[in-house]
Each structure stands twice: as structure tokens, then as C-alpha cells.
Design a protein around this nucleic acid. Sequence first.
RNA 1: GGGCCGGUAGCUCAACGGUAGAGCAAGUGACUCUUAAUCACUAGGUUGGGGGUUCGAGUCCCCCCCGGCUCACCA
Length: 545
Amino acid sequence: MFWADDLAASVDGPQVVNDSKTPSGTVHVGSLRGPVVLDVIVRALRDRGIATTLLYGVDDLDPMDAQALLTPDAVEREMGRPLAHVPDTAGDCHASYARHFAGIFIETFAGLGIHPDRYYWMSDIYPTGEMDPLIRTALDRAQVVRDVLLRVGHVERPDGWLPVHVICPACGKVGTTIARDWDGHTVAYACIPDYVEWARGCGASGRVAPFGGAAKLPWNLEWAAQWSLLGVTIEPCGKDLATAGGSRDRSDALAREVFDREPPLNVPYEFLNIGGRKMSTSKGRGAAAHLMAQVLPPEPLRFLFLRPRPNQAIEFDPEGTDAIPRIFDEVDRIAAAVAGREVKGELPPFPERLYALAQLDPGADHAASAAAYRPAFGHLALLAQIPGVDTAARVAAEKGGPLTPSEELVLAERLRAARVWLDAYAPESARLAVHIDAVPERVGDLTEDERSFLSALAVAAEVDPPGSGDEWQALLFRVARDRDLPAGRAFAALYAAFLGRANGPRAGWLLAGLDARFVLARLRDAGAAGVAELPGPTPAMGASS
RNA sequence: GGGCCGGUAGCUCAACGGUAGAGCAAGUGACUCUUAAUCACUAGGUUGGGGGUUCGAGUCCCCCCCGGCUCACCA
């Protein structure tokens, strides 16, 4: 079975699937793997008739620890405060830094067909008091917490350390406080100036009841507490957390030993690497999730994350490669196979399932959408670069009939993606560039009859200027035939003269889209240019006079 | 040092334990309004190394080598 179906087959009873994220800054495409994996698992469960709830949380009471986006004067003030309390640096009307960045991320979900039943924000939950019983349990069992952290995570806490972070009443920071002396009602806290390197505490101290939003649980414990609070049964997590002795192991042990609850089923998933390296939010040009969504529409983007098993790292390098066109092509190939057409190469296991899960709407007619006509991405990228071409008409002609409304949508989506791809990622070989300034060097490789064809074409076009792509195309063939030059070589000569390469788009339309005087001049120049550069017995003779 | 993933054609990758394939790149050929198109063909491999299980191993087990990511301080 497909991996998600295997997983769904291994559980019984109603399921609560959960994931949460700390919104510390811009998120990159790789971060979308988690949500897609979640969604696919949920679909697989529901397809088996298992009642399933999908939750998505924002850990926005976690301390601010990334100063990249803060102004210098804000660093001292904001670092270490809960993300939910840091003002939105973008100043675009979000209530906080956390709401801004989490919002950008979450907004991509719906576009990917991911629809959690409920979003929750820890900054909303703590003040309600729902976490209080769990905080109390953690404090009562502080020694158990310390033992677990030492045994599982090899982290030793100082004597008297309590598993709670008070939000400093004086400076509002949560990352800089330590708590001691739990008396059943209050704890003693201190906001330490040099407790952590990335933030500076104010030095305040006192006693406070750590409930109702006055304090939060430390990371590993908060995770385990969420499972108890929400009844989570399945929670995937990234491999950075799933490592042995890492966060997940600690939280699993804390769930069992502090909250007396079996932790949820884990589905560790690997990362998406860009060019063999970890994707970096700060350096990764074009790797931001919302940017990638412009060049990879939902279906291929889901496909990218779906096809490999979760524990398999995905190597993805869109920069200057054909990685993006390849994804489209692979989706199309599988769609063709699903629609019953013969395809080359081996298919992945369960292509129908893979195809269906890549679709936005789980309830849609997958057979129909698989059978629909799909213009090849690479071909669209080419058409998009030819001046004056009617793409829709061309694609309809290639299909052999008018496009359906949904096919038109796919075309528009792909055309948009192709333009972004050409602009941001495409290798030079995929870009058409008319050499305006000088005759391309490649013209020097042309044979004499090819060059004279170019000259003759210039003469013919001057006598009776073609007014359209069709007329240019007709003229090309006529001149080539008159001179007994095979059409293939004639076209190659044209591409050499204008594009500096051996092939290109439909030549007539390319020429029709360029300035007529430039075309004539280039044809004459290219027809003459190569001659002088060619060694050999033939004396150089200009095409003129 | 621990964990996870990978090493298969020049490149990118595929192959429920059952004849190692595809795309791109390369080469050859076909094609007179088809021109990074289409079609046909060719070439390219000791599946990182060594053991083991099996009628049969790219696939499963063990040991190495190489690469990547990740954790080990904090969340």
C-alpha cells in the first residue's frame, strides 16, 4: 500500500492528528512538507472511514530568538519576549510578529488543499487556564521532569530548577527567567541578565502564581502537555526533532512519566534540501514558501512532497536546473498512466493513489482530471518567450480541439508559473535571447550555402515584406526550396543568426515579432559575416555588389 | 560521537525479493509550411566494497568506505 495507507491501516479508533510550529520568521518551502504529510495522513485515515480531526497549532508564546528582522533598538527590548507579544515588524496590521509570520505560512495551506479543522494559538490557550492543571502536574513532578531530561536527553538542570518559564512581570521576557521553590500556589522567579546569550534579562525577581498565562511550560514539556490537552494520537515531526535523545524522545518520555499518557504515533519526516544543503531562510533566494508557491502550483507541489516516503530526504535544486519542469512532467506522466494511456519508464507504486492524493480536492473526479489535456511545462516556457504568439490558440491546436474550462485554468496556471520560472530559476539554455547587438559567433560555423540562404532571404523579404508569422514561415520554406537547401538546415541557420543556437521556436513567428529593419540587417550581416572568418582556399567575397 | 537518509548509465532519478529502466545529455537516421516538435534507432552498468540469507538480492541481515542532513546549548 501507499505509505499513508499503511499508516492508516495500523491504527484503530478515532484519531486526532496534530502539528505545531514556532513562528520565528519567514518560512521556506521545506516547511510545507509537514503540513502536506499531515494532510495526506488525514485523507488516508478518512478514506478508511476513521473519524479524524486535524489540528494545527502556533507556539507563539515561545521566546523571540531571531533578531534578523528587528531594528537595532528593538533587539534589546524584544529578544526573549513571547513572539505573540512582539510587535509586527512589517507593520501591516497584524497583532504581533507571531501573527504576521504564522499568518503568511497558514495562508498557503488552503491553497494547497490543506484544511485543519481547528487552528490554535498557545497565546490564546494559556490565558484561559486550560493549561493550568498540566502546569501544576509538571511542578508537582519537577523531580521526575529533571530525571527524564537527564536520562533521555542528557541535559542536567541545576538543583531546585522548576519546569516553568515565568513571563517576567517587569520586562515581559520569557526566555530569560528561571523559577524555583514551588509552594503549591506560587513560584519564585528571577529574570537573569546573562541566562541566555541571545537575550538579556532585566534582573527582576519575586513570586508569582504561574497560571492563567503568567508562565509557560518549557518546550519539551509543553509539547507533551499539548498531547494531553488536545488528545493527540498522531503527530509527525521533522527529523531535527526526531533524532535519538532529541526533543521528541524527551517529550515522549515526559508524556509517559509526567502526564501518564502514551505519546502519539510519530511519523518522522526528512527535510527538503536545496542543492544538497539545508534550505536557509535567510540566504535562500526564492526558497520562501510563498515564493515557491508561485512557480509550483498546488498539484505539483503536493506531488513533490508526496511521492517519497516521509523519511526520505528530498533533493530539490530549482536554481538553474530543470528540476521544476521535471516535476510537471512527472505529474503529467503519472496522470497519463492513470488515464490509461501508455507511458514510458517505470511507474511508482500505486500511481492512482499518488495521483489522487496530489489533487487539491479529495472528492473530485480524479479519473476526469487525469484524462484532461496538459500542456507540457517546457513547451509553455518556450511559447511564453515568443513575441506575439497566441498561446491559448497554439495549445488548443496541439490538443486538437478547444480546451475545456478546467484545462484553460491549468494552462493559465502553468503559463504564470513558467514566467516566474524563466524569470527566477531557469537555466540559460531554457532562455531565448535574441542577440541584438552582434552577430552570434555560431554563425561562423555555418556553411556557405546556409549563409547565402540568409542573404537571399533578406533580399526576398525586402522585395515583398512578410506581414505575419504565417507569411514569414511561407517565405522561409520558399526561399529554402528555391535554393535546394533542406528545411532543417535553413532553420538552423536562422536560429544561429538570431539566437546563437541550433534550434528554437517557430521561426516565422519569431521573425514576425522582431523589428523588421533589424531582421533584414541581421540577415544580411549573418549572410556575409561568416565568410571572412572561414579559412580555406575560397577568397572572401561579400554578399553584396 | 549519536540518529536519519542516500551511493544505480555522463547528469537527475525509478524499479511489491523475480529479465536493471526512464528523462535529459550524446550519437545516427527520417520528416517540404512539424523545428529546444515528433518518430525510429544506437551507445552507455561488476547497482560504493565485502560477507551472509534465498531457487533467485539494487531490494532483506551483518561489517566496512564515501556523501548529505540532523542532534548533542536553547526553544
